[in-house]
Amino acid sequence: MRTNAKARDLMDKASESTDTEGAMLARHEPPVLSVERLSKTIRGRKIIDDISFDVRAGEIYGFLGPNGSGKTTTIRMLVDLIKPTSGRVLVCGEDVNKHPERALRHVGCIVENPEMYGYMTGWENLDLFARMQEGIGDARIEEVARIVRLDARIHDKVKTYSLGMRQRLGIAQALLGAPKLLILDEPTNGLDPKGIKELRAFIAELAAEGMSVFVSSHLLSEIQLLCDRVAIIDGGRVIAVGDVNEMIAQAEAHTLWLFEDPEAGRRILAEDPRVDVAERDRALLDESVLLALPGAVPTRVRQDDIPGVVARCAAAGAGVLAVQRVVPTLESLFLTLTGGERDASGS
């Protein structure tokens, strides 16, 4: 896959702003996580191809990509579960692969599901992991159990826990050593909307206290709600790094129009030179948004032009019921970043 001019432009822009800010920060301390030209080949197949990015102190960093893009393999390399074929991972300046006993001291992580020993209680599990590291006593175990609000059930066997509780126990385990970097792999998987909201607030709280959080997801909205910066990975390569909102602003946003008289409305939009009726993009849009506005017309239009178009529709008697800007999905962001080559290459 070859990135087009637009994507390159976006990446340059992103790295520019990173460089100036990064230079300022670098004088004080190295990045909490630094991934340098990481590659992994398994049985002759290049799973991860030369990826690099930095995570700074106190930032929530998103790692976005569709399923099978190499997110989990990368995360496993970040925590020494998989040895990289080339490149290296530094945590607080320590090489994870060469000195895991020093580097992983600063890391708390959940890789995929938070699997713990079901035949032991939550407390016994935490106690077990606390003993693997210097200076974590009962007081700290009690503290993290309270932080994740598991203190009421902490002395029950883990096999009786719900998925949400296991997730919280996993986070408690990750927080035990007061890490500088928290790595969460698809943390909202299997959580209900309420749980997702709580988790988001919780992660924001941790970051406010100075912890860096690295979150992977395949949902753009998820990353947009949570993260400051993002690395987008596809087919084992990082195709863009930068500020989430900037990146989304660059992506082509859509506007949905819902009319009392759909026929008339569609005709007016089609005639208006400011509006591009983009029926072909319907597949790229978020299904839940389309569901809320049945029969809406997807268009591309500049935000400044919307009031004028609305006025014109109203004057013509089409009866505007709703006009809604739609956040781009990961799919449409990909199209912007790769200029549509992604679909053409069939990946």
């Binding site: 925590v79 020494d80 579960l81 006993e101 001291r105 890789v111 995929e112 693997m132």
Partner: peptide, 11 residues
């Protein structure tokens, strides 16, 4: 799957 927790500790 507990090996992931076990081997990501600083040991």
């Amino acid at each position: 799957g507990t090996i992931k927790m076990l081997l990501t500790r600083p040991v």
